[in-house]
Design a protein around this nucleic acid. Structure first.
Lengths: 226, 226
DNA sequence: ATTTTTATTTGATCGAGGTCAAACCACCTT
DNA sequence: AAGGTGGTTTGACCTCGATCAAATAAAAAT
């Protein structure tokens, strides 16, 4: 892990992100002033459940996985954060302790924001507080969505739902590239890789073609019905 | 559903709750000033997923269930809120639309807080914003905990975990009363009632006794190992 | 291009838990 | 005491997805 300064590309990613995008410039600058940038190899462990954690992370590039460990060593993914996402914010409100493990999935650049400073800024700047609340809310929703899907949908249905989530409304014919390995998608959907593979092959009958990382949809309706 | 005013017992519940407990008196009073109280029969539907929702609910007494519907009509519980809990807050940040269905589980009294007002108050009062962030955070945690447990633990392990969550640390011999029907516990744990029943009977071997709603633990270690 | 490594698919097996039906039980009412 | 009513338990069966092992495919390294 190497420590660097923010370059202009990093700034662009930060300013274009959902979180920083709607903050007043003054607040953004105050935060970015003493941000620390670090680079990580793939599979680097960022923090572990229960460990002290006094900053919030922003993904400048790469991919990070949040997960919990079972006592038998098995892992359950809680969330996957691509570039532009902020994570680790819940520790800020829970005694500065991480509530899960975090690991990079690929080579990743992160910006670290001091949580004390962010929290203080939120006290003084309603827009920051509001942005934080929206972030927390979105993360809560993500977890609730996952929970509901796990409980209500079969593996092929969850995969169909994931695909549809990446397909603009009203379009019936569509294709896109997975932003990560199938491996990772499987974890995100709470499936073993084998189950994901089988789910894809079950969806083939409903007009889904998979070539490497590229997914093609030929019949949106069929997917929705699945 | 009948509409009432806050009585002194209601105020006590509100003031003793996790959310209002740490607010400055002025903020609490501002909120309570135009709270609306309503009573509901059991199984009353409070709101449905996607519907407009312009207030936040506080449980004065009774029990409320948040759940999502699958397209086949099956239901997946997201959370269960007993007296003293605030819920429905996420709609505030997501365009005033409910993200799930809510239903009373038993006869219930609710206080409704206007979300516009609460949000405005949060802008002006850092303590309110902070309390809201902690609430959102706790709810996000609850969902993540559920998700992780669903993915990592078997039915008996989830039940064991629930029991241990109700048992003070360091005590080996313990007994408590379920705060709701087994029915409800099953839903909360993402199990069919039959599966909960079987889980209990699997735990009997580890020193758990179930008599009606009363759960007795005779060997904490055995439960932890399960 | 060839080898090595890593990711994905396929096959076979197994177990957890859902579902349906029936029995059981507790608590009410009459 | 008899009869409801609704929650809970038990039994039987079956489906989904985990797991293990092996085959393939794709990527990276030489």
């Amino acid at each position: 892990m190497k420590t660097l300064r923010l370059n202009s590309n990093d700034r662009a990613v930060l300013l274009g992100s959902c979180f920083f995008g709607k903050l007043p410039m003054a607040a953004t600058n105050a935060i970015l002033d003493d941000v620390v940038v670090s680079t990580h190899e793939e599979h680097d462990i960022l923090f572990g459940q229960g460990e002290p954690l006094d900053h919030v992370f922003f993904v400048l590039s790469g991919l990070v996985r949040l997960y919990r460990l079972g006592k038998d060593g098995r892992e359950a993914d809680i969330a996957v954060f691509p570039r532009g996402e902020l994570f680790g914010e819940s520790a800020m409100f829970l005694g500065n302790r991480a509530t899960a493990n975090a690991q990079t999935i690929e080579t990743t650049m992160l910006a670290r924001i001091d949580s004390r400073k962010l929290r203080k800024l939120a006290e003084q700047t309603p827009e920051v507080a509001d942005a934080l609340m929206q972030l927390l809310c979105r993360h809560a929703q993500m977890a609730e969505d996952c929970l509901a899907e796990d409980r209500l949908l079969t593996a092929p249905q969850r995969v169909a739902s994931y695909i549809l989530g990446n397909c603009p409304d009203g379009i019936t014919n569509f294709s896109f590239r997975l932003p990560f390995q199938k491996n990772v998608l499987a974890g995100k959907l709470g499936l073993a890789p084998e189950a994901l593979s089988r789910a894809f092959s079950a969806l083939r009958r409903s007009g889904v073609t998979v070539k490497g990382r590229v997914i093609e949809i030929h019949d949106r309706q069929a997917l929705e019905r699945f």
